[in-house]
Design a protein around this nucleic acid. Structure first.
Lengths: 249, 249
DNA sequence: CTCGAAGAGTGGTCCGACCACCTGTGGGAT
DNA sequence: ATCCCACAGGTGGTCGGACCACTCTTCGAG
């Protein structure tokens, strides 16, 4: 560690960082998109041509394309070509679920706290902005949860219930982000032990409380209800962690 | 867009999805980590061996490894081997900056709204939890911003100021997420035109207002101050978008 | 005992070949 | 003239091998 300008406070330092050819290609392609030289939906040159243009082998170019593909920036269609995605929230945040899938222990608790923050705000926004039709969708999922006892379907409608609310909040990016946080694996893991504690009935009441706040168009009540809802799961999870109970997964 | 079976409520539909060999390898490796068969910091078999184990060529295996590398799940060290990262927030959320970098227009506004939600909550949490030392760091960056006029350094300390607060909120994941949202490129783009409207002095006052709320340990005041701070940038951005002004970048 | 050089092993890059798939085209049937 | 389909070319997907750059360990010289 060598400090140069020991100013007031430490500022970010950028290492020289070995530049691998593939990494540079990734940066170049990203830059092309950022600069508008490649637009959403546009088709890229063929892997062979593009590799020649940027001065690297097809193998390395393929790795770069694969990397940008998993990031949701590019999309490869076998036999057709490689295209830039629409670069919408749904495309770029698809990978966000990985974070939830691979996080564990204390980090899972932190993610749940973040979800509580965003879910409560989203629900509050929804209370102010929701349209009758959107409210109908919310109610449909609520009703569907009441009519079945299949855990799979309950969970699916639970997710859809919250997503419908997030969409009604009018921020698609927020909705996608929340969906990632409540991804199948994430919720399934927590739910596995959660449901066995009779928390099922309570969950239903919490959902109805959220619904009432939406109907009343009361943002603060909605915020409180949503925060309490997520907070319950959060509390249970922290309890498990304190007890040293190993999480399934 | 074609709507099919607008039944009660649409539930997620999973396409058959062509399974490319590389994609399957990615899933397999992710599963191994999720199941604990591969632990943080652990070294993977060599590319050649691992490829043989999973029954594919080294080329395809390399693409899978590259993909998981950009996601922050794996780390390849030239000449040494491939390792699982610590799977901490900093590792997995590194890619989040890409979203901010490649978003534009209305999507940028949505991201800013998300930042406002999280920043205000983080600041509120910080007001309740911040330690004297952490407060000292915050003040140092505040002072540093006052003492220089170099936009580069001001911006750097601005970022560090907010990051210090987020860290004080006690949620590292939240801090990393916010850092991604306020990434260099993202803020630089918005700032470019923003500072020229005399908003610079106002920004300083807003920062001081946040600081006072932290000193007073007043979460609600802190929340309001942070929300107003981000809200100002948000308002300006929406104005630009309404005017159809093309964003730089 | 210390230290540096050499070797083995690893990821990084490149090449060429072949396969699977899509798409546009052209000729045939209607 | 119109429609349909087989076909051929082009594209991404996969494979195997070769060589380079780097790291780490080991062992011999000092």
């Amino acid at each position: 560690m060598k400090e140069e300008t020991p100013d007031q406070e430490a500022l970010p330092k950028e290492a020289p960082h070995k530049e691998t050819v593939t990494q540079r290609a990734i940066e170049q392609i990203k830059a092309m998109i950022a600069q508008g030289r490649l637009e959403p939906g546009q088709r890229l040159p063929t892997e062979r041509d593009f590799a020649a243009q940027l001065g690297l082998s097809r193998s390395s170019m393929r790795e770069a394309i694969r990397a940008l593909t998993v990031l949701g920036v590019l999309e490869a269609r076998h036999g057709s070509g490689v295209y830039v995605t629409q670069l919408e929230a749904g495309d770029l945040l698809e990978t966000f679920g990985v974070v939830a899938d691979l996080s564990r222990g204390p980090q899972l608790a932190e993610l749940l706290e973040i979800r509580r923050i965003m879910e409560s705000s989203a629900t509050a926004l929804a209370a102010a902005r929701i349209t009758p039709e959107q409210l109908g969708v919310v109610e449909a999922h609520l009703e569907a949860m009441r009519l079945t006892e299949d855990p799979e379907r309950i969970l699916a409608h639970d997710l859809a219930f919250h997503r419908a609310i997030a969409v009604a909040a009018g921020n698609e990016t927020l909705a996608v982000l929340l969906e990632g946080l409540s991804s199948r694996t994430f919720r399934a893991r927590v739910w596995r032990g959660y449901r066995e504690e009779g928390a099922f009935e309570r969950t239903r009441r919490e959902h109805e409380r959220i619904h009432r706040a939406l109907v009343a168009r009361d943002p603060e009540a909605a915020r409180a209800a949503a925060a309490a809802h997520v907070g319950e799961v959060e509390r249970w999870l922290r309890l498990q962690l304190d007890q040293g109970t190993p999480l399934p997964g």
